[in-house]
């Protein structure tokens, strides 16, 4: 026998409503969480922030997760592990940016390349923004030693001023050719240009009149030169 039938009747539907509301809220929270992950890491990594920030995020649970996070897009030059504040966040490959979804705050992002070298940078993650960290171009002298094994080829065109002797002949020059480029390190490339180099010298406008001012001829081209040129050389980059 229920001594308080009048009390339980209204309670049951209330509990049911609360449970339903909790289930709905939980499902919505899961959906929001998965949506935030889907927009984030290619490698499926979502890194939590420091504990204090994490607690704040938990307290602000009703707000959408995406609105309380920021992103970091990490670009690497070769396969590397990505560490966020010392924690392994996954593996990045050079074909795609490695996306991290993080609560706002300061982070230390380190990439450890398969070759053993590593690089660390600080980043400030702000809410709703994606910050790009590009590790492909390393600063300083490390450029000289970081290997870059790659061939490129292309073409080249150019033009300028050429003096064909030391007697005042001067005229335009031009060239066109093929370029073979071999990247030795990130800073040094070995480049060979194979092409045609031509020049025109000279057009002596003032000399078309002699000392007495007599017209002695039209403007003229004194020299035409055409050279097949093979030009190996090194290109040095600062970054």
């Amino acid at each position: 026998m229920n001594p308080f039938p009048s009390l339980l009747r209204p309670v049951r539907p209330t509990l049911a409503l609360v449970l339903a509301a909790l289930c709905t809220f939980s499902a919505a929270a899961r959906a929001e969480g998965s949506a935030a992950s889907a927009t984030g890491p290619r490698g499926g990594v979502e890194v939590s922030s420091s504990p204090a920030t994490g607690e704040e995020a938990t307290k602000a649970a009703p707000a959408p997760l995406a609105a309380k996070t920021g992103g970091v897009s990490v670009h690497v030059v070769e396969g590397a592990r990505v560490l966020v504040d010392g924690a392994d966040a996954g593996r990045a490959d050079p074909a795609h940016p490695f996306e991290l979804t993080l609560p706002p705050g300061d982070y230390s992002i380190r990439v450890v390349y398969d070759g053993g070298s590593n690089e660390k940078r600080k980043v400030l993650v702000t809410e709703g923004h994606v910050t790009t960290l590009d590790f492909r171009d390393l600063p300083g002298l490390r450029l000289l030693f970081e290997k870059r094994d790659r061939w490129l080829m292309g073409f080249t065109v150019g033009g300028g001023v050429f003096a064909s002797d030391l007697e005042g002949s001067i005229g335009p020059q031009f060239e066109a050719g093929l370029v073979l480029n071999r990247a030795l390190t990130k800073a040094v490339e070995f480049r060979t240009t194979i092409g045609l180099h031509g020049w025109v010298a000279e057009a002596r406008g003032p000399n078309t009149f002699d000392q007495q001012g007599t017209y002695v001829g039209r403007d003229r081209i004194d020299t035409l030169g055409l050279a097949v040129s093979v030009e190996p050389g090194f290109v040095f980059h600062t970054r």
Binding site: R191, T193, H197, A227, V228, S229, V230, E231, P232, G233, F234, V235, F236
Partner: peptide, 8 residues
């Protein structure tokens, strides 16, 4: 850049 051309 540093290079040496061989013109003909």
């Amino acid at each position: 850049r540093l290079g040496v051309g061989i013109p003909l």
